[in-house]
Design a protein around this nucleic acid. Structure first.
Lengths: 243, 243
DNA sequence: CTGGGACCCTGCCCTTAGGGCAGGGTCAAG
DNA sequence: CTTGACCCTGCCCTAAGGGCAGGGTCCCAG
């Protein structure tokens, strides 16, 4: 007849755990010896090990108690459910691990590989680190909020960068960040941007605006907030497009 | 500028979760609009997604808050630790799943395959279901408490069953369960058992008794409790061995 | 026979990561 | 003008134990 401490060591749990199981009616309270110590038998060891197997699998203690009284068929169904649940939990953990590794490899790589490639391309084309970082944030946001259309948008953006004139517009946008908001270059750039936009897109169907989302505004807001020149640029472009 | 509900949907969490993160200083409180509603920006979406990645990996929220302020080197070390931890967690879940399947396949199979084979053998040899079940419990206990010596004991037991005379002793033991404690057969069997034990083992070194464990007594106690005849058998054998 | 260290007992409060509800204000659409 | 969908704060609740206080037991060495 073993004591609670030995039972605990055998089953690889703490004494407290055993007492909790008694309190919750999972494991029957054993006899007490003359001094009030609990004395356990082989049955208890076996029961405890089974309980732990279920508990380790994530079954709530209350459920385990139910199962101890349930008919065999129910128990087996429950075991199948738990097994399936374990499988999905393992799969999820693996996915999380993948995300984690992306996060460790640098923020940008939280995105699908296509995006990392896009950002690398930006760096090659001579965009400033600040711009690349901003684009990273932006695409994180787009992919997080509109996964369905994000890929399409990204391809459109890649096309844009393939055209030297359009690419120059973005390079100038990047460069404008530190200019005075009233630098004449800003107005000239705004003109080019409005023209290019009208050229490329149906004015009422700008990309990304077909979903009733506030994400584009959100992004633009974030962008504008980082530079007064950019803020003015946005205002000017909007004016010209809405004439 | 999105509301808390939208942010929650984007990040796949509940509103409450976001409020908790604010309360714990994980995610900075955003500006409020004129009616006191929180208004979030792109930054918040990105931060929240990162936080969730860590939280999903099982990092405690308090730790995540620390990491947000920690230098880059620390963060990367932490990410490596978390990654390793995830790997062991996945491995443990897999082991648990294996245990669970054994449990589903019938109690006996909670034991290593060698034991299941042993129990199958018992069934073939004509032992009663009750005996087989008792042996299952017994071996569960032995393997749970003394994994180092359990295999050795099992092999010894397999040897014993290979000898027809010894096997007959166990079959008779099984059969004795339902006899009257004073049936003469019991005394005769006790004699055979004592002889066989003396024959096979050094009297002071019975198998399993070299560890200072109460498990053998525990097992014998459980066995004895299930039948008065068995109880008497044990008493008689002990008497004869200790003369 | 007397410490002392290792056990055991009950009872109580504490923790994590949120869930849920009450009670009240806000917004947009019909 | 109302209705349904949001949002606010504040409060209590949960699961599975951890930790501690305050007190009793056991066994072994001095």
């Amino acid at each position: 007849m073993i004591t609670i401490g030995r039972l605990a060591r055998y089953a690889g749990v703490t004494i407290k755990t055993i007492r909790v199981y008694h309190a919750k009616g999972l494991l029957p309270e054993p006899e007490r010896d003359s001094s009030g110590y609990r004395r356990y038998t082989a049955r208890h060891v076996i029961d405890l090990i089974k309980i732990r197997t279920l508990a380790d699998a994530g079954v709530p203690l209350a459920r385990i108690r139910e199962l101890r009284a349930a008919p065999d068929a129910d128990l087996h169904q429950a075991l199948r459910d738990v097994d399936a649940d374990l499988t999905t939990r393992i799969r999820n953990l693996r996915r999380t691990q993948k995300h984690l590794r992306r996060l460790a490899a640098g923020d940008a790589d939280l995105l699908p590989p296509e995006i990392s490639a896009h950002l690398d391309r930006l760096r090659e084309l001579g965009f400033s680190p600040r711009w690349v970082e901003l684009q990273a944030d932006l695409w994180v946001l787009v992919f997080a909020t509109h996964p369905e259309t994000a890929t399409e948008l990204l391809h459109d953006q890649a096309d844009v960068l393939a055209d030297p004139a359009l690419r120059q517009i973005f390079l100038d946008y990047d460069h404008a960040h530190d200019l005075d908001p009233h630098d004449p270059f800003i107005e000239e750039l705004a003109g080019r941007m409005a023209d290019a936009t009208r050229d490329r897109y149906d004015v009422d169907r700008l990309p990304g605006q077909d979903t009733d989302s506030d994400i584009p505004a959100l992004i633009q807001g974030t962008v504008n907030a980082s530079s007064p020149a950019w803020q003015r640029l946005d205002t000017l472009v909007r004016q010209q497009l809405h004439d």
